[in-house]
Amino acid sequence: MPRHSETKYRLVTTFQRRLNALVRRLPGHTLLETTGRTSGLPRRTPVGGRRVGDAFWLVSEFGERSQYVRNIKADPHVRIRLHGHWHTGTAHLLPDDDPLTRLRTLPRMNSLAVRTVGAGLLTVRVDLAD
């Protein structure tokens, strides 16, 4: 990874750790809950995306470097909190999907942030069971 991308990754993830600790507490924000690949504990990450039918779509700004993507690779069973209600589902990483095209179908402000700070974008689809 080029040095600029690595610096960007470190700055953004440091900022996000602090911000996410606050955002996770907001009742209306969308959360993705994965199972920690090492600890086995629930890990909740604020995400931006959109439900389309029985699927929830999002784009990971750092692709396979994102901790929640690593957790999904270890165990794809997840939960999504949408509008205050939890939904179970199975996450699928879609490296063949065009994440920039996908971002055009997702909420604008989140998509702008992902395009601005991201490197190595990766589409994720969660098939909702309920």
Rank of each mutant, 00 (worst) to 15 (best):
D127S: 07
R70V: 07
S39K: 09
D97Y: 07
H4E: 12
S60G: 10
T7W: 14
S39H: 10
R17A: 01
L19S: 06
P95C: 10
T34F: 09
P27W: 00
T38C: 01
R50E: 03
V114A: 05
R51M: 05
H85L: 01
V124Q: 06
R79Y: 15
L122H: 09
L32H: 06
H85R: 13
T105I: 01
H29Q: 03
K8Y: 03
R24C: 10
D98S: 15
D127G: 10
A119T: 13
W86K: 09
E61F: 09
T88Y: 06
L22V: 03
E6K: 13
F62V: 05
T34S: 07
R115Y: 06
T14K: 08
R102D: 02
R102T: 15
R70W: 05
G40E: 13
G28R: 00
G49M: 05
L106F: 05
L58Y: 03
P42E: 09
T38D: 09
A55Q: 09
R108Y: 11
A21F: 09
P46M: 05
G89I: 05
R17T: 01
R65Y: 07
T45F: 04
R18G: 14
L93I: 13
H92S: 11
D127Q: 14
D127V: 11
V59K: 05
L19Y: 05
L94K: 08
T30R: 03
L32V: 06
G49P: 00
V117T: 04
L112Y: 11
V69K: 05
G40Y: 11
P42R: 12
F15Y: 14
